[in-house]
Amino acid sequence: MSSTIKSPWLIHYDASSCNGCDIEVLACLTPLYDVERFGIINTGNPKHADIFLVTGSVNERNIGVLQQIYSQMLEPKVVIACGICACSGGVFRDCYNNLGGVDVAIPVDIYAPGCAVRPQAIIDAVVAGLGVLEEKRAAFAATGGKLAEKPVLASGLSSANKIVDGVSVRDAAFTKAREASKALASVTDRQEGANND
């Protein structure tokens, strides 16, 4: 066991959450749940963080911010999608400005559903994330500090470091996500049409 998982540091970003999950993430850090007793500390600096907690779904404005923060975090790192919106888009799935869950933008390791996600679920997810973090660290150490495989983004992009450089890469992510949400919207429209008849 490495020192990392004895005191993992968190960074939290509100993608397009309703705040419900954000205040629950903060509630985890305060006296009743107090994750600091496990050495978990909330940081605002991506370069200090091991675990990335994302709440809310992805839209066209914040997809770049999300990928930017992810690419600034050092390896090994774990991404946790907190709340059903971060997992799949949740109740906002049918909104026009919604591309879907966090996995549209960056690879997600742990999904913690709930609306709003309960603090217990967040703590469980972080503990599960520690296992993943340790695996990634071991793999990272075994290769002498090189990534065993290049981090593959869910949208089919190859390297996390390249994301912020080129607009074309972001455009590809947009196009793919947009197509996916359009396909989904047409399916739900048809279903709702059937219900109305």
Binding site: N59, N62, V91, E192
Partner: peptide
């Protein structure tokens, strides 16, 4: 604009009683 979802528009797709949620 970072958290814009378009909820006012969603009222056209949801039953007025369901929209409370």
């Amino acid at each position: 604009g970072f958290v814009h979802r378009g909820l006012e528009k969603l009222v056209e797709k949801r039953d007025f009683q369901v929209y409370v949620s």
